[in-house]
Design a binder for these strands. Structure first.
Lengths: 236, 236
DNA sequence: CGCGGCCTTGAGTTTACTCAAGGGAGGTGG
DNA sequence: CCACCTCCCTTGAGTAAACTCAAGGCCGCG
């Protein structure tokens, strides 16, 4: 078991930590029966900062949920580091579709802090899902939402310029916290990378927005001064 | 029923045409029981060229499969027409994740030829899937593959330049037909749009590739002369 | 205090876009 | 049968957006 990342075994050892997995946060509301069945299948493990969790193109045999910590999915290039396509904060799925689909990881995944993972081997999970219809439905819904998010990002990348993408991203962040003050939880270079621009361009766009009075930036704190104008700039 | 597009009813009338729906092409291998259950749920209808099939942001209550013809998903802008994000040839899913996820259409969808659709209302489908585990699994797999495709496109759009994207697209087309001669099935402007570039840029890239001897272009026919070099240009 | 990341800023360059004009294929009507 | 129209693709010239490269400043840490 855990054949995916044998090299990590030595480093991170300790399988099946006695940890509570917050399935509702990952899959939506679940019967306690279903949750227990998942618990029985899941193995948790901890991974140190900087360690590789998955490698693009290698076999993906387990679904992986990030329970705690921060990890980044993206593209590792020799001596350019890893450019972030998605930054994940627990609890959230880290690897959901690859084992269910083509069976190969789409991205390189690296821990950005010490993280706690829960892993579900896909074959037993399939067998379980075949017996528990509501569980399959929850996975269907979760996957469908993921498609929606990707569609949106693809759309923005194709049709919006850097300023609009940043504005849209800020608006999206705003929804979550329902406040006007944002604390950026990621390095700016990772934000830039997710938005498909360079750190330099992000920096200039931030400055442009603050010069126009839409936001006020101070380090990793962003205060949104004019949410409506920001929404307008984002192009709905 | 068919409340999604009441305006079309008058035009396209005839619900439940007696048509065979090729479920295996849409969902993978299926028991005949499952296929029959889906048949019982599905309604087919025909839509004329140029008609709107779905509108971004409106309620999505049915899964829609394109059985025959060609349709385009994208973004309709007033007097810029519709810019293609995805061109679909039957048989293939046209609207799969939106009803299962947020319940709103992600894109505008327009028929590019006379098309034949099969529609599955999502609520009865959910009920059916709850009773038929293998069916849910097929939907899970189909959605997971869709996520994989979107991930790939997102990755290419973020990290590859126009030339590499075109090369990658040509390589992908090549897999399907396993030949060296491609017949483009879509307008070049739609290909360009899907690749996130303008028609002018696509034209120049095509010329650049043929000047370098990688392909030979004649109208809508492309002969691939150097598949390896093309693969290299595509960046794996 | 010095060091290493990270962000910022500026200058110069590249890529891809916009705008405008021209040519080919297909369809329609005289 | 030809003239004409329309739609689409192509090509060129100029422009604008974003990237690269290089330098400088800030912050936290040893």
């Amino acid at each position: 078991m855990n054949a995916v990342a044998p090299a990590l075994e030595a480093v991170t050892a300790r399988p099946r930590l006695p940890v509570h997995v917050p399935w509702p946060a990952l899959l939506g509301s679940l019967s306690s029966d279903d949750a227990q069945a998942l618990d029985a299948l899941a193995a948790t493990r901890s991974v140190a900062e900087g360690q590789t969790i998955a490698t693009r193109g290698t076999a993906a045999r387990q679904l992986i949920a990030l329970l705690d910590g921060q990890a980044v999915c993206g593209w590792a290039q020799p001596d350019r580091g890893l450019s972030a396509e998605r930054v994940v904060h627990g609890p959230q799925w880290l690897v959901l579709s690859a084992p269910l689909g083509e069976g190969r990881h789409h991205s390189d995944v690296v821990a950005q802090s010490r993280v706690l993972l829960a892993e579900l081997p896909v074959d037993p999970l399939r067998a379980l899902a075949a017996r528990r219809p509501m569980l399959s439905l929850r996975f269907m819904d979760t996957l469908a939402r993921e498609v929606g998010r990707l569609d949106t990002r693809l759309h923005e990348l194709m049709h919006k310029d850097a300023g609009a993408r940043l504005a849209a991203w800020l608006c999206a962040q705003l929804q979550g916290s329902s406040q006007v003050v944002l604390r950026l939880a990621e390095r700016k270079r990772d934000i830039a990378s997710q938005l498909g621009m360079t750190p330099e361009t992000l920096s200039r766009m931030m400055r442009s927005l603050s010069e126009r009075g839409l936001i006020a930036v101070s380090g990793y704190t962003v205060r949104v001064l004019d949410p409506d104008a920001l929404h307008g700039l984002a192009g709905t």
